[in-house]
Design a protein around this nucleic acid. Structure first.
Lengths: 144, 144
DNA sequence: ATATGTGCAAAGATTTTGCGACCCT
DNA sequence: AGGGTCGCAAAATCTTTGCACATAT
């Protein structure tokens, strides 16, 4: 699957006129290999073994570019560091209100949702980000 | 409306055995008066005029407590600072993928959605946070 | 060739922590 | 009275910026 995504990545870069650099490809590859919503810091660590010198600020810049181009997306942890997701397919997240932990979840009810054609202030909908907020088992147990 | 929310706040504090302090009440009041998803820093600024000495770290601690108790909630800006919302009623957000700007939006289709009774790993659903991700008018214009 | 992207170093912004004093219940 | 909270100061974490050099198209 990673191979397939990388091929599409190259194609998308050409299509969107973003320069395809080795650094960008490496960052995307790291994200495609880790779909557990890693932080930028974690991506950087993962890249260390193949690319020991790639600096963290560069990873930040690349991540920003890829998000702006729609090749990856942010999935806010709601409590601090930015988290990333190379999975652009429709899926939902369960987010713990207390510890911020987040896991993927897919419910067919949401799969075919479409945005209304008219949203306020000319907002251009691209996709739904549906998250169910609540308590994970561990935090629920702590509260009794 | 703010008065009503404050009354409920006092009651909820008692109910949940959180000590009702003047500081906590002031923070909640500031949030009830500004429903535009302020950052912690903005809440702190707003409190300055009524409470010049209340330190920022204390605001952080109070905010953390109120979130953990379900009296307010986080609405992640997806690109950095934590944002807060004292409006606990069901509503949706439009979030710009590029600039992170976020606005409230209410669609009746979502108003009465209920969480499935069984979620993975014993996750305890409290509410849906439905956000439509895309481009705000300004960012859409910049991209042509 | 040239505009775009990267590396390096430094700073900026945001959030957390430790500890003694204070105050709600 | 006693344990949760607050104030203060300091630090840790996360993210951005400026500028010179390198590189993709």
């Amino acid at each position: 699957m990673v191979e397939e995504w990388l091929a599409r990545f190259d194609e998308d870069c050409r299509k969107r006129k973003i320069r395809l650099t080795a650094q960008r490809r490496a960052v995307f590859k790291a994200l495609a290999e880790d779909l557990g919503h890693p932080r930028v810091e974690e991506v950087h660590q993962r890249l260390k073994k193949d690319w020991p010198s790639l600096p963290l600020p560069t990873v930040y810049r690349i991540v920003e570019d890829l998000i702006a181009s729609g090749l990856i997306r942010r999935v806010a942890s709601e409590d601090g560091p930015l988290r990333l997701d190379a999975n652009m397919e429709a899926h939902q997240h369960l987010v713990c209100r207390i510890c911020g932990r987040m896991e993927d979840w897919r419910d067919e009810r949401w799969a075919n949702v479409r945005a209304p054609s008219h949203l306020p202030n000319g907002f251009l909908a691209e996709e739904y980000d549906i998250r169910i907020s609540g308590l994970c088992r561990a935090c629920a147990a702590k509260k009794n």
